[in-house]
Amino acid sequence: MAKNSSSSTAVPDTVWLGRGRHLGPEAERDVRRNLLALEAAGVIDGFLDLDPVEAARSSDLFPRDASADPGPLARRLFEARWRVAGGVTVRAQLTTYEAESRRGEGEGVLWVLAAEAERAWEAEWPSPATVFWPDSEQVAWDHERVPGVRLRRTNHLPKDDGEMRRLLRECARRSWSIHVVVHEAMTPDARGRRPVTAFLPPSLRHRVVEHRATPEQALTAGFALTRELGVGLPRGGAVVLPTAPGMPGYDAERFTVRDVFLDGTQPAELLGKITEFAALPRPLPAGAEEVLTRLRQGWHLLTPDEELLHARAMVTSYARALEAMTASCDLYREAAESALAALAEATGGNGAARVPAPAAAGQDTSALKSLTKTLALFRRPNR
């Protein structure tokens, strides 16, 4: 995959980012089927299914640099374009990767997704995840990079204190998602076991991971959160976890809810805290900057009008480059002619330098000065 690096640059408000693992047998087939169905239904304008090597290849009309290369582990690259809010265009890329290590079983196929709209992203817009992946429980595309964690389900914290702390630490450091921990004050029924994230707006739903602490885990979960992330967990309440690196504007008390009733009704206060947290400026997580650059600079799915504009821009660029080269050649030729003339004057036309007689040593040396000045032209970078 792309190199693992972090950036202090904030995620643009026009961008939606996601990352996870698909544990099914044929990840790319699931993506193709979903894109074909949405294109046939008119939900998306179009899509491309690309070989990563071909996607990164440069040409005269489409010059691409190293930022367009998704890396040696890339399996497939998909692009899709659709419109929201009456005409706002969204462009998105999803890239699938081989597992980084073959030592562990069940790692599945890794995927990263970046989408960008023509204006600030709105939570009510369709989730880019369900443009590429089917929104079905039968397709297990929603596994987090952190093992044992899923996006569309409630995730109960491990019973072992050490495992719990390790999980929370990994979620803060490795995940691109927003993580929420909810304490069950009493064991909920079937309605209360429904994920709180199901009530979130579509574009936010697949960016949030919900963890549950059982009634007896009140102390251990609170201790683990305080020790690892510096936040508390009220009994029967919830807290939106901070990210690593930290976010400006985050305050644990601000994103803590004292009471969450897990009875199947909409927990308005907690949903409001999650939405507020998602609106904060957030540093680009590790690896996201390369994904966003590839979306912007390695885009292939152009409309006919966009292709025409691109071709015209390239013609203009090449014309300017040719004009600059011609001007440079003219200047070089003029300098060369001046140098030859000065050399002829300095040598008397026979190639041998004329040595002035002692009596004439103090006389005019304008020919040598002219030659020196002319040759200096060749040492200037802009010549």
Rank of each mutant, 00 (worst) to 15 (best):
A352N: 07
T365N: 02
T374S: 12
A342T: 11
G348Y: 01
K369W: 06
S370T: 15
R379G: 11
E345T: 09
A327S: 15
D330T: 15
E334T: 12
R379Q: 10
Q363H: 07
L340R: 11
L343F: 12
L343W: 09
A341R: 12
F378I: 02
E345N: 12
K373S: 08
E345Y: 03
L377V: 11
R354P: 05
L340E: 09
A361H: 00
A360E: 08
A367V: 05
A327G: 15
M325V: 13
P356K: 12
A361I: 05
G362F: 05
A367E: 09
Y332G: 11
A346W: 00
L375V: 04
A376L: 11
S328N: 14
G349I: 08
T347P: 04
L368Y: 01
G351I: 08
E345K: 11
G349H: 08
S366K: 10
N350M: 04
L377Y: 06
E323N: 13
A336S: 12
A341I: 10
S366A: 10
V355C: 07
A352T: 14
E345L: 13
P358G: 02
R379P: 00
L331Y: 13
F378G: 02
L375I: 09
L375F: 01
P356H: 09
K373V: 07
S328Q: 14
T326Y: 05
Y332F: 12
R379Y: 01
F378H: 01
T347N: 05
N350C: 03
L331T: 15
A367I: 02
E323P: 15
G362K: 00
E337W: 08
A346H: 05
S370N: 14
A344C: 05
A367T: 09
A352P: 02
A353I: 14
A357K: 08
A361M: 01
D364P: 00
A342M: 04
A360T: 09
G349W: 09
R354A: 13
M325G: 14
T365L: 02
A344W: 01
C329T: 09
L331I: 08
P356F: 07
P358E: 00
K369G: 03
D364W: 00
E334I: 03
A344L: 06
E334S: 13
G351R: 04
K369F: 02
R379T: 12
